[in-house]
Amino acid sequence: MDLVETYGEELRFARKPLARTLLILLLVALALLPWWGPRGWLTRASLVWLFAVGVIGQNLLIGYAGQISFGQAGFLAVGAYTFGHLRIAGIPFPLALAGAGAAAGLAGWLVGFPSLRLKGPYLAIATLGFGTATYQIFANVEWLSGGRAGLAIPALQPPFGLVRDTWVYLLYYAIFLLFTGTAYNLVSSYLGRALVAVRDSDIAAESMGVSLSRTKLLAFAISSFYTGVSGALMAQYLGHLEPQAFNISESMNFFVAVIVGGLASVEGSIFGAAFVVLVPALLGGFRWAVPVLFGSAILSVLILEPLGLAGLWLKTRLYFRLWPFR
C-alpha cells in the first residue's frame, strides 16, 4: 500500500522503496565499473558523464525554460579555455572547474539578454551568432588558444595508487552525480516551476508574479555553468585543446542529445548523452554515417516519440507499475 502522509514525503526523490533500492544498486554498480567492466568501457563512460553534465545544462535551457540556444559550443569553449589557462597557472582541479563554470555562467548571463526581447527562431539565430563568434575568436586570438600548438593541459595525478583511467572515471562519475542531483533538485523547486511557466505561457507567468527577465537570465546562467563545467571536463579528458573541437557541429551534438534524450527531462539528458557518445563508437569504421544516423534519430523521435528516450523510459515504468494487469 502506497500511502503518502505528509506533503514533505511527496517531495522526496525516488520515494518508493523499490525505486530507491534499484537506483542505489545501479549507482553502486556504476561506481564499481572499473573493477568489473572491460577497460575500454572506462574512457567511453567517462565521456558519457562529462557529456551528460553539458546536456543537462542545455536541457534546462531548451527543455525547461523553452529558450532555444544553438551557441552551446561557445559556452563549452569558454569553460574549456578558462579551465585550461587556470590549470596551466597551477590552480588545483576543483577550483579551476568552478572557475570554468563561473566564466561560462557569466557569458551565458550576458548572452541571455537578447532572450528578453527575442523568441523562438530569432533567439536561435542570436545564440548561433554567439557560438560562431566565440569559435572565431578562439581560432584567431593566439594568446587565448595557445596558437598553432594548442593548449596542453597538465594531466591529473591519481591518488591511492589508482590507475589513471580509473581515477578519471571515478572523479567524473562523482561530478556527474553532483550536477545531476542538483539539477533534479532545481527542476523540482520553485525555480523549475517558474522555468516551465515561462516556457508554457510567458504572459501568464509574468502576470502571476514571475519576473521574466530574472528567470530567463538565471536559466541562461545556470545552463551555461553546466556547459562550462562540461567543457572543462572535456579539456581535462582530451589533455589538449584546439578551437576545432568547439565548432558548430559540437553545438549540434548537444542539440541532438537533448532532442533524442527527451525535452524537459534530466534522465532523458543522460540517455541523450549516452546516445551521442556511444552510437558513433559502435559504428566503428562507418564514422561518415554518424550525421545521417543523428538526423534520422531526430526525425524518428519527432514523429514517433516526441518525449524521446525519456518518453520510452516513462512508458516502460508505467507498464511495469500496472503489470500484470494492463
Binding site: A197, R199, S201, I203, S207
Partner: peptide, 12 residues
C-alpha cells in the same frame, strides 16, 4: 487576473 482565452501552464 484571469485571461479570456485561458493561459494556463498546460504541461504542469
Amino acid at each position: 487576473r484571469t485571461f479570456q482565452n485561458l493561459r494556463l501552464f498546460l504541461h504542469m
